[in-house]
Nucleic acid binder design. Structure first.
Lengths: 130, 130
DNA sequence: GTGCCTACTTTCCTTTGGAGAGTATGGGAT
DNA sequence: ATCCCATACTCTCCAAAGGAAAGTAGGCAC
């Protein structure tokens, strides 16, 4: 089981605090529930429109959908294509950068899928201990 | 570049909606800024006490530190060992499950490290477009 | 005119999160 | 005996984030 250090020892140890801070900020931005869920939806279904995305990501409010998509666009993760027609038509898709982040998150999805039961068991054990 | 489907096609396609909902909930719980940062801190520094963790994770409030650690303990990600001495001494460490999640997040750290510049560039481009 | 369509905004209100002070405990210093 | 300290919280108060629902724009069908 490799750790970050074992995979990229030199790069990791060589980080100066300034870069580490930036990485932490980026992680804080990107390690967000809605961002992850949107990344997954766009990865799985390809180009989507606003309403479609709101259906694909259950529980997201329009406000958060707009907000998260904008932030992802600003970060270069999604491409936003506006067709100047009426009624409005806006298509969202992953950029190469977004796809690579989606792949980076792949391990987390697999982990969640594989360990659902363990987490569930731990929770009930914890709750009955109280 | 493998996608989720290519790595685990059968398991992924076979998910019934109920399981997918649970996975989404688990992702929502775990894809949290503080959880990721704590996971990283514990992975890198091993067993730590409360005050140490608050120093290792810059910007976290005591409230969020307590809260996040409790949630992680409940999910079986961290082990909380209380030594009944005075002043109090509580040691936190990753469980096997926590370590495996830390490894799953490894790709995201590497991605962030590798793509900091691209994201930064995209942001300034976006901001000057406005 | 009325209503419809879509992608947002806006408003209002609840929940979450941060800052800082307070708590409990016994041991060591004075 | 009294004071102070260390540690891991816990509480209170306030600001910020987030959700629900209604509103907006503007061309088109009726």
């Amino acid at each position: 089981m490799p750790s970050v250090e074992k995979i990229a020892p030199a790069a990791y140890e060589a980080l100066d605090p300034r870069v580490e801070t930036l990485v932490n900020e980026l992680i804080g931005r990107v390690a967000d529930k809605w961002t992850m869920l949107l990344l997954e939806a766009l990865e799985e279904h390809g180009t989507c429109r606003f309403t479609r995305l709101s259906q694909l990501v259950p529980g997201i409010s329009q406000k958060m959908l707009t907000q998260t998509l904008r932030a992802m666009e600003r970060d270069g993760l999604v491409d936003r294509k506006v067709h100047p027609v009426v009624p409005p038509k806006v298509e969202y898709s992953l950029t190469g950068l977004g796809q690579s982040l989606g792949e980076a998150f792949c391990g987390v999805w697999l982990w969640a899928e594989a360990n659902l039961d363990r987490v569930e068991a731990s929770r009930t054990a914890f709750d009955t201990r109280e």
